[in-house]
Simulated scan of single mutants.
Amino acid sequence: MDGRSDRGAAGGCGSVREDLGANVIGALEPEENEQIGAHLAICPGCRAEHDELAKVARLLSELLPVTRVDRHPGWPSRAPSSRKPPQP
C-alpha cells in the first residue's frame, strides 16, 4: 500500500480495494492490515467485498491445499503493480 492516510474516507476505497485480496490471504504487512481493518470497520461496501473474497479464498484453500512458503529475505515485500497510470 502507499501509506496514504485517506483509508477512512471514501477516497480511500480505491487503494483499500486494491489490497483486499492480499489482505484476505495474509500477504500484507501488519501495518497495512491494520489500515485496512480500520477502513473495513467504517465502510460497508469494502467490508462486503472483503467478505466475498474471504469466502472464495476459503473455498479455494479447501479445494487446493497449499503449503505456505515463507518469503525469502531478498524478495520484495510486494509485487510491482501491473496497472498503467491513468492517462490525462
Rank of each mutant, 00 (worst) to 15 (best):
T67N: 11
E62K: 13
H72E: 02
L59K: 02
N33W: 08
N33Y: 05
L63S: 09
G37Q: 00
V66D: 01
E32P: 02
G21V: 04
D70L: 05
L40G: 06
S61G: 14
H72P: 00
K55P: 00
V66Y: 05
E34M: 10
W75F: 15
E62V: 03
E34D: 12
G21S: 15
W75A: 13
E62Y: 08
A48E: 10
I36W: 06
G74E: 12
E31G: 12
A38K: 04
A54F: 06
P65A: 00
E34Q: 13
P65M: 02
L63I: 14
H50R: 02
L40F: 01
L53Q: 04
A22P: 00
P30W: 01
E34V: 14
D70E: 14
I25H: 04
V66W: 07
V66H: 05
G21C: 14
A22C: 08
P44Y: 08
C43L: 00
A22K: 04
G26H: 03
L40I: 03
S61E: 03
E34C: 03
R58L: 08
P73E: 06
L60T: 04
A57S: 13
A57I: 06
K55A: 08
L40E: 07
L40T: 03
G21N: 08
R47D: 05
E62R: 07
G21P: 00
P44K: 14
A22T: 04
L40R: 02
G37V: 09
D70Y: 15
R78W: 06
R68W: 12
E29T: 14
S77T: 15
P76G: 06
I25T: 13
V66L: 09
L40V: 07
V56Y: 04
N33L: 08
R58Y: 13
I25D: 03
I25N: 09
P44D: 06
P76C: 08
E34G: 11
T67G: 08
R47H: 13
R78Q: 14
A38E: 03
G45A: 13
E62W: 09
E52W: 00
W75V: 10
V69G: 13
H50L: 06
L59M: 10
G26N: 05
E52M: 03
R58E: 01
Q35P: 01
S77K: 15
R78D: 08
N33V: 04
D70Q: 13
S77I: 10
G45L: 14
K55I: 05
R68V: 12
G21A: 09
N23C: 11
E31Q: 15
S61H: 09
V56C: 06
C46Y: 01
H39S: 12
Q35D: 12
P73L: 00
P30Y: 10
I42D: 04
R71P: 05
G37Y: 06
R71T: 07
C43A: 07
H39Q: 08
L64H: 11
I42T: 13
A22N: 14
A54M: 02
I36G: 01
V24Y: 01
W75D: 15
R71I: 10
G45M: 06
A41H: 09
V24T: 02
K55Q: 02
C43P: 02
K55W: 02
V69A: 15
A27Q: 02
Q35L: 11
V24P: 08
V56F: 07
G37H: 10
V56L: 15
L53N: 06
I42F: 11
N23A: 14
E31R: 10
A57L: 03
S77Y: 14
